[in-house]
Design a protein around this nucleic acid. Structure first.
Length: 268
DNA sequence: CTGGGGATGGGGCCC
DNA sequence: AGGGCCCCATCCCCA
């Protein structure tokens, strides 16, 4: 299961990038000097999408994945983070504002009823309006609860990648992602490019033969810590990944997946 | 076919 | 905020 919860993946991310199609924001790192190499160039702001630096960028345009908002929520067309009293509706905005409320497990009527029951001022006319969906509430607390449950959660900033459809919740995450497109770290030996310096370092070990990660159980050594970790599983009697059906264990998830795809699970 | 090694991608965490 | 490292995941290849 991917660890990421910040980004939706829309393509087979496993394939190696086509380096010839990528930008040339590169830093050549001498493989023999990488203990003192300079850092990769940070991509210029203009490579970011138009919304990337907007302080209040909401789920704006009709990118296909916007249709996948949780619980069928619609993209929002504007947002102000402040809670406020009734204000005139946004001028001539004909985009979707039809938040029927049917997406919520707690209906709006229930929210309002709860607000009225819990707030002594609830008997007043409804005068607190959500500036996102124009729903009105008789109490501030009712409005605040509504926004917390429904609107604010949808309207957090998003930072879009110019090169693909991915969106991120922070600019830093976006910048990191953009490096996977620009691949600023280039191996001086073979010209292969990587998104991060330490990826290049690992790659350089394939040229130098350096294997700093040794197995304590045998005399094998590895250039990559993850590969040592996978190797350590082979020394373990109880493998980490177990088939739910036949209880057979495997040292790697990929082996378990192969096992499952081979038909074990359907045979039971 | 299976198991394992090699290589790489990428988000999260920590400083 | 950004760099470096950690960890997980996955693909390819080979024995």
């Amino acid at each position: 299961m991917p660890r990421s919860f910040l980004v939706k993946k829309h393509f087979n991310a496993s394939k190696k990038p086509n380096y010839s199609e990528l930008d040339t924001h590169t830093v050549i790192i001498s493989p023999y000097l990488y203990e003192s190499y300079s850092m990769p160039v940070i991509p210029q702001p203009e490579i970011l999408s138009s919304g990337a630096y907007s302080p209040i960028t909401v789920w704006t345009t009709a990118a296909p994945f916007h249709a996948q908002l949780p619980n069928g929520l619609s993209p929002l067309s504007g947002y102000s983070s402040s809670l406020g009293r009734v204000s005139p509706p946004p001028p001539s905005d004909t985009s979707s504002k039809d938040h029927s409320g049917s997406e919520s497990p707690i209906s709006d009527e229930e929210e309002r009823l709860q607000s009225k029951l819990s707030d002594p001022h609830a008997i007043e006319a409804e005068k607190f309006q959500c500036n996102l969906c124009n729903k009105t509430y008789s109490t501030f607390s009712g409005l605040a609860k509504h926004k917390q449950l429904h609107c604010d959660a949808q309207s957090r900033k998003s930072f879009s990648c110019k090169y693909c459809d991915k969106e991120y919740v922070s600019l830093g995450a976006l910048k990191m992602h953009i490096r996977t497109h620009t691949l600023p770290c280039v191996c001086k030996i073979c010209g292969k490019a990587f998104s991060r310096p330490w990826l290049l370092q690992g790659h350089i070990r394939t040229h130098t033969g350096e294997k700093p990660f040794s197995c304590p159980h045998c005399n094998r050594a590895f250039a990559d810590r993850s590969n040592l970790r996978a190797h350590l599983q082979t020394h373990s009697d109880v493998k980490k990944y177990q088939c739910k059906n036949c209880s057979k264990t495997f040292s790697r998830m990929s082996l378990l997946h192969k096992h499952e795809e081979s038909g074990c699970c359907v045979a039971h």
